[in-house]
Structure formats: structure tokens, C-alpha cells
Write a protein that binds this DNA or RNA. Structure first.
Lengths: 149, 149
DNA sequence: GGCGATAATCTCGTTCAGCGAGATAGTACG
DNA sequence: CGTACTATCTCGCTGAACGAGATTATCGCC
């Protein structure tokens, strides 16, 4: 029971952090006239751009669990906001590639800048070895939950 | 730059965990005919019940950043599903108290059971001292981000 | 103790994100 | 070349959430 309640504490902490990050995202969204989904899409698109993954509407919809109609509407929205640009894939002309505009990366930095700052401050009181432990734990949780789905 | 990219990794990990938990919640929601908002509401209501906080529609709406109309619709939905019961506060009869039904706690356990199981499994390869470090770090992040808002 | 001010909740009408179904256009493969 | 397949988009609809304002209960003040 003691061991279990210990892990309960971890679950609640993780959930609390999740809630906090969600709220940050939501507040950022309304402040910039976006929807929470738009912010999530932006995050995925920036991740893709950074890792060199080619983003398409179908891929984006899959990440966000949206159907094709919703995805089209989402991309329309992002395009209208000047955050993303549609371009045809020359190799497979059925495909549409989504390229993030300068404006989107700027917006991403605006969002993550403060968050990173806060995490850096929170990490200040920790040894590098301790941070490594935290990273290892979060990675384990991630793999574990991803596998569960 | 190295220290900064180290913290970047932490931010990305935390964000990834957030995304993963969100997806779990969303999938749980559709599987039980609920909306994501309903699941979030349920979490808040169960938290309130556990900590002895008296829940009212106004309080719940504040937690979820819903306006009064949306809150009423939400409570209607939850009541129709038999997850919650409205009852008048005897001390202040303007107020409506929200009491969670047995069904809601069962549903909550159904949701968190597997999540807890996964986190427990993820925690298995760690020393108690390491888990304490993780808890301390998450608490620090929580305070830090909460303060930023 | 009545009466305006205040607070919590609910009602009404509207907007728009996301869904299901199906159309359209490009590709692969026999 | 025709058939099966895939990617994206169009159309019509449902319902969550919004803004504005009505309703109901309580409190403070004279």
C-alpha cells in the first residue's frame, strides 16, 4: 500500500503538470486568436520541421486524431493565419506538403520561450545526475504509456 | 548552449508526456461516449471529492475555463449520464452542490487504473531515492509554471 | 422588515470545430 | 488501359461553448 501510494503521488504529479501545460497552451491560444487544436497542430508541425519529417494534412490529422474533413478545416485556418503554406509534392502529386512559415516558428518561440525559462529555473537546484534521472524516468513513462495505447 | 539544450530536452519530454496523457484521456472519452471536457470535469470533481472541496457549477466552470452557459450544459450532460447529482446547499440556497455518484468514481478508477499501472511499471527500474528526486523535480516545475501564470 | 445591490445559476439564440459520407484527382499494378 | 488504392477536399450536419440577459436567492442598509 505504501509503495502503491508512492506511485499514486507520481501519477498525480504528472497529471498536475499535464493540466498546467494544457492551461498554458490554452491561454496562449486565446491570446493569439487560436484554438487549442491549432496550437497542438503548430507543435507537431514545428517538431516535424525540426526533425526533417515531411508534414502532410493526412499525417497531421493522424497526429491529432482528426478526420480528413476536420484536418482540411484546420489547415485552412492555419493557412489563413499565415502560419503554414500548402505546396504540392512533386514526387507524388496527390500529396500536399505543409511548410511552416517564419511566422509560425516565431510564434512557437514566443510560446516555448517562457516555458523553457521556467523549467530551467526549476532545474537550477538540481545536479546534472539528478536531471539525468528525471529524463530517464520521463522517457520510461513515455514509452510505457505509448505502448499501452 | 549545452546546458540550455539539456533543459530543452526536459521541456520536450514534459510536453510529450502531456500529449500522451491528453491522448489517453481523449481515447478514454470516446470509448465511454464522453467528451474530453467531460473527462477533465470528472477529474476535477473526483479531486474535489477526495480533498473535501465542495464543488459547485461556478467552481467547476472556473477550473475548466468555461462560461456559465457552457458549465450548465456540461453539468446537464454529466447528470444525464448519472455521473453527478445536483443538490441544493442548505447553508446558502443560491448555491448548487455537485456530488459525484458511485458510477463516477468507478469510471475514474477505470481511467486511472491502467495509467497508474503503467507508471508503476515505469518506476520499477528506479531506486526510491531516484523517484524522490523525480517527485521533487516535478513539484518544482509545477510551482514554477503555476507562478508564471 | 422591505428594497436595492450582489451573486450564482440557468435560458436563449448563435457560432464554428469536428464528424460522416462521398466526390475528385493522382498513383500503382495487373 | 482499367481496376484497386490513396490523399485530399466538399457538403451537410451535430453539438460544445459563447455572449447577453433573465431568474432566483441572499445580504446589507436604512
Amino acid at each position: 500500500m505504501d509503495a502503491k501510494s508512492t506511485e499514486m503521488g507520481l501519477v498525480h504529479l504528472l497529471r498536475a503538470v499535464t493540466v498546467e501545460f494544457d492551461l498554458l497552451g490554452a491561454e496562449f491560444a486565446v491570446r493569439h486568436g487560436l484554438h487549442p487544436t491549432d496550437v497542438r497542430a503548430l507543435i507537431h508541425l514545428l517538431d516535424a520541421a525540426r526533425s526533417g519529417t515531411r508534414a502532410t494534412p493526412g499525417w497531421l490529422g493522424g497526429q491529432l486524431r482528426l478526420n480528413s474533413a476536420g484536418t482540411t478545416a484546420l489547415v485552412d485556418r492555419l493557412e489563413r493565419l499565415g502560419l503554414v503554406r500548402r505546396s504540392k509534392d512533386v514526387a507524388d502529386r496527390r500529396r500536399v506538403l505543409l511548410e511552416v512559415e517564419e511566422k509560425a516558428t516565431v510564434l512557437g518561440e514566443t510560446f516555448f520561450g517562457p516555458v523553457i525559462g521556467e523549467v530551467v529555473r526549476a532545474a537550477e537546484g538540481f545536479e546534472e545526475a539528478e536531471l539525468a534521472t528525471v529524463r530517464r524516468f520521463l522517457t520510461a513513462v513515455l514509452e510505457s504509456t505509448a505502448r499501452a495505447r
